[in-house]
Amino acid sequence: MSQQVRAVVARSKGAPVSLETIVVPDPGPGEAVVRIEACGVCHTDLHYREGGISDDFPFLLGHEAAGVVEAVGDGVTDVAPGDFVILNWRAVCGQCRACLRGRPWYCFNTHNAEQRMTLTDGTELSPALGIGAFAEKTLVAAGQCTKVDRRASAAAAGLLGCGVMAGIGAALNTGSVGRGDSVAVIGCGGVGAAAVLGSKLAGAARIIAVDIDDRKLDTARRLGATHTVNSKESDAVDAVRDLTGGFGADVVIEAVGRPETYRQAFYARDLAGTVVLVGVPTPEMKLELPLLDVFGRGGTLKSSWYGDCLPSRDFPMLIDLYLQGRLDLDAFVTETIALDEVEKAFERMHNGDVLRSVVLL
């Protein structure tokens, strides 16, 4: 039978979110119902509320989540009721050209649940990133559930569902940061801070954190940055070059998503170095670079989508490192809040007061 649960819904563009009763159907073939234990408040949820992703209102918000599988539909074999899982928005299909070439982290046909959750009047909801986890329970494709060690804190584990994985993956997977490398991270919010942590995990010798907010730079230093640059006070490109013998960093990770910070990343890298764009630009943004500089500087310009992660590979490995005390995911949990405090959390996030507010259910 379907269930009625509490959830956070964005009904119209720019309007405050509301706590609503929604209907969660029984899982169909290939689907799972998950009882949510924790869900982080991500900028992407705010983008949905502001209509920056689509106008398919009403949205069921929330996607950085961990919880316990309650029920599965026909044909589901990878997870079972009682499994502790992290939800992901890269449920790979296994059949597209990327998957068949052995690159499932680029899957071009990721899938979501076929059925829709609804309001009690039957209005269909659009779940954020195909998840919708600011809810006591949610319906997802079973492939969006990745089983991990139950000993992990749900508040910390759930953050791998989006921002923290995006940052760590930008360093480990996309940027291929290696032992002894120099790395600069431009923008040290949640994703950039995670990129600092990923660079430390990879063994980078020099990690330069760049931001305009000293609070974020302090956090980056705690997570492994060896140097910090406040780009309000000094030129970011000159500072990175000064800290790397005049050459620039081997890998520069741009975690802001703006043309001006991308240009900084481009010129702050060493010759033949790598730029990784993990910050998300808005549709109207344009980038201008001298084509001769693109040619002459060589190297690699990459974008990183979800940290080029493969959840079935990366989530269990990172949770194991967390349980070993080698990956401080708890550092990203600034505060825990109730389901009806999401709107206030958006304001704190917008003001840069938190790395992550996490809803506990």
Rank of each mutant, 00 (worst) to 15 (best):
V177R: 07
E260Q: 14
V17S: 02
R326N: 09
G298H: 05
K147Q: 14
C99V: 10
D235W: 09
C309S: 13
D214P: 00
Y262N: 00
A113T: 05
I319A: 08
A133T: 10
G352E: 07
T244E: 00
M117V: 09
G299N: 04
E20P: 01
L46Y: 14
F295G: 10
S126G: 00
R179Q: 13
M317T: 10
A155E: 14
Y322S: 02
A152L: 08
L46T: 09
K13F: 02
A338E: 14
T123R: 11
D55Q: 15
A65L: 12
T334Y: 06
V342I: 14
S54G: 11
P127I: 05
A195W: 03
P27G: 02
C107Q: 04
A272H: 11
I36P: 03
S176L: 15
G298L: 07
G190T: 14
P127M: 07
V85H: 07
V164D: 02
G14L: 08
A157R: 05
I22D: 04
V148I: 15
H350D: 12
W305A: 01
G299F: 05
Y48V: 01
A65S: 14
L87T: 08
V191Q: 03
V92M: 11
D218L: 13
G180I: 03
E284L: 12
A194H: 04
F59H: 15
T120P: 01
L100E: 14
A65P: 00
G203V: 01
I22N: 01
V251K: 02
V294Q: 13
L360Y: 05
M317V: 06
F108L: 15
D26Q: 15
S2M: 14
A66F: 00
Y262G: 00
A194P: 03
L160Y: 01
V76C: 01
S357Q: 03
V358M: 05
G102L: 08
S231T: 12
R101C: 03
L46E: 15
G14K: 07
T123K: 11
E20N: 03
T110R: 13
Y106D: 10
D121C: 10
V196I: 15
D214G: 02
G246Q: 12
T44L: 12
R97Y: 13
C145T: 11
M285E: 15
A65Y: 10
D340N: 13
I22M: 10
C107Y: 04
G224N: 09
L323C: 04
D293T: 07
